[in-house]
């Protein structure tokens, strides 16, 4: 089965006063219908820039796509956001953002903002679109949908706003929902509700989800496949079980060590990853994680690691997997994975 969304070797740069930042340095991934792909990594690793460039949302200038391709259903969408003359955004791909408080227009009613998408893409009349908007609000489990549709964003709580964002992005039944840290700005209890909602809606509609997050708990709960990004590159990819239980990159291990768990039996201390990500004005020639890696080797400093295939769909960019490497990579990782 050919992928619904296929991204190959995407490269994005930003011109800033300090110089050119290479925010995304050759990212590839494929997404199949009905699946959930999680992209994880710390702040500034290029997760959001990756999806925003695919959606044509990075401001240009200063942003610039310098290479790569993204195809949706076989159509190149990196150069043109239109398929058959119609915008894919809102129609084939829906998107929700991190901060629902600022992501909605404060001077329009929620209903109007949802209806707008239908008016533009489906040519619904105002009345029709508004009626459908109320149904969509109901679908996201907001009580008193008809009344709520006539209210303004400032009258909503953060969780309800994010539900409305979901209703808005799903108005035209897109094949893909891109969720850019959808729960980061919300209370923990609300986070769970929003994730449940997304999961239920995915089952009902069969859409694919690209979920961007730095929360491994969210990944474990939602994802089929995982992409671990570091310093603008994918360092490990694979099925969620592979990445969690057979982690194959020191950075993934670092992330896991820094994640709190709810196992009360373990006297557990969280281990932060020392140091900070490399300067993307001048990315290091070798492995981006070299300076922070507990297993750094001489080879890592000047040679960018290639992707080593470790199993079906599981690969990692780390020299530890090289056949000539004296260390037993398997042993290293087993030790960490308990």
């Amino acid at each position: 089965m050919s992928a619904l969304l296929d991204v190959r070797d995407l490269r994005v740069e930003f011109d800033t006063y300090g110089g050119t930042v290479q925010a995304v340095r050759g990212v590839s991934f494929a997404l199949e219908g009905g699946k959930t792909l999680a992209i994880v990594g710390e702040s500034g690793c290029g997760k959001s820039v990756t999806v925003q460039s695919i959606m044509g949302l990075i401001p240009r200038p200063p942003g610039r796509i310098t290479g790569g391709a993204a195809t949706l259903d076989g159509h190149d969408i990196l150069r043109d956001q239109k398929i058959d003359g119609k915008d894919i955004r809102g129609r084939l791909v829906g998107m929700i953002f991190q901060d629902p408080m600022t992501s909605l227009n404060p001077t329009m009613t929620i209903g109007d903002q949802i209806a707008e998408t239908l008016q533009v893409h489906r040519r619904y009349s105002r009345r029709q679109a508004f009626a459908r908007a109320i149904e969509l609000i109901e679908m996201t489990r907001i009580p008193e949908a008809a009344k709520r549709a006539r209210q303004y964003p400032f009258e909503f709580s953060g969780g309800m706003l994010q539900r409305s964002m979901i209703a808005m992005s799903l108005a035209c039944e897109p094949a893909i929902l891109i969720a850019d840290e959808p729960t980061t700005a919300l209370d923990v209890t609300i986070q769970g509700q929003i994730l449940d909602l997304m999961g239920d809606l995915q089952r009902d509609t069969g859409m694919a989800i690209v979920l961007i997050t730095h929360d491994l708990g969210v990944v474990a709960r939602m994802a089929d496949d995982v992409l671990v990004m570091y310093a603008g590159q994918v360092v490990e990819r694979g099925g969620v079980d592979d990445v969690f239980y057979r982690s194959a990159h020191p950075y993934t291990l670092g992330l896991k060590a820094a994640m709190p768990t709810n196992r009360s039996d373990a006297e557990q201390t969280l281990t932060p990853i020392d140091g900070s990500p490399p300067d993307l004005f001048a990315p290091p020639p070798g492995c981006g994680y070299f300076a922070r890696c507990p297993h750094a080797m001489q080879a890592c400093e000047g040679n960018p690691p290639q992707a080593f295939a470790l199993g079906t769909g599981h690969e990692a960019r780390c020299w530890l997997h090289h056949a000539d490497c004296g260390q037993d990579a398997g042993a290293v990782y087993r030790e960490h994975s308990q």
């Binding site: 949302l57 119609k86 955004r89 809102g90 707008e116 533009v120 964002m165 808005m168």
Partner: peptide, 12 residues
């Protein structure tokens, strides 16, 4: 942010 949302909705 809300202008970015509007763009993501594919509005003209």
């Amino acid at each position: 942010d809300f202008v970015r949302t509007a763009r993501a909705k594919g509005l003209p």
